[in-house]
Design a protein around this nucleic acid. Structure first.
Lengths: 116, 116
DNA sequence: CAATCATATTCCCATATGGGCATATGTCAA
DNA sequence: TTGACATATGCCCATATGGGAATATGATTG
């Protein structure tokens, strides 16, 4: 029997993986270039184990790739996994535009009334 | 003293709020129209308390709005909060395109070699 | 006010999480 | 092989989470 999970495993879901601010920051950092763990840790101001753990999560959902380079292990971005997220949110684009339009209309209306 | 948080509170972060598949489904459902809790619960096949809890999270991060309508409380989508997510992922668009291009190139190369 | 329908909240549980720390594993050089 | 550096893991903790069940709170109607 498998018990009910309290929440989808972070290791299997890109949405969950990027729910962590530090991981988002790491992805942004890797946008520049591939980097060894120590570099990530330093740039992000975190301990090495912490960086490794976050990188592991990112690797498991496929957002980063790693390769050995001498003693170092270089992590690089693989942004393809972000595409579904972008597309999912994109499915709401016209709704946030609608909201915006409504707000604008409201603001215009206010201004009109005030000017009378 | 405030103890270290194990993870950013779901109630304060849109990224975290949409990390839950059911909440994403609720947002998609509300894209159609505003709906009472009972409706959401039924459509999603979940109990009422569960629906209420998810809706609460969504409300607290500003992704939904609610208004009283008789005995019912109607929830409606406010997609504006999804925009930052869309934009953040959009910042990686050229990278996933790059990856795609590289993959394509690789595939082409494979095909070329095989045809020789 | 009482009864009823709709929703929110509370309490409890099992599990997932992030972080620290110590330590294992891996890689290369001498 | 040994030593050094680089990274990954394991263990432990405090906290957050989703879910269920029972119950409180709200709103409406009679």
């Amino acid at each position: 029997m498998i018990g009910e999970m309290a929440r989808a495993a972070t290791t299997s879901d890109v949405f969950n993986a990027i729910a962590e601010p530090q991981r988002r920051a790491i992805l942004a950092l890797l946008r520049g270039a591939e980097r060894p763990v120590s570099d990530v840790a330093r740039q992000m101001g975190m301990t090495q184990p912490r960086a490794s753990k976050h990188l592991r999560v990112l690797r498991e959902v496929g957002l980063v790739t790693d390769r050995q380079a001498g003693k170092q292990r270089l992590y690089s971005l693989d942004a393809r996994g972000l595409r579904p997220v972008h597309e999912w949110t994109g499915g709401f684009e016209r709704f946030w535009n609608d909201s915006f339009d409504r707000l604008e209309a409201y603001a215009r209306d206010l201004a009109r009334k005030r000017s009378q």
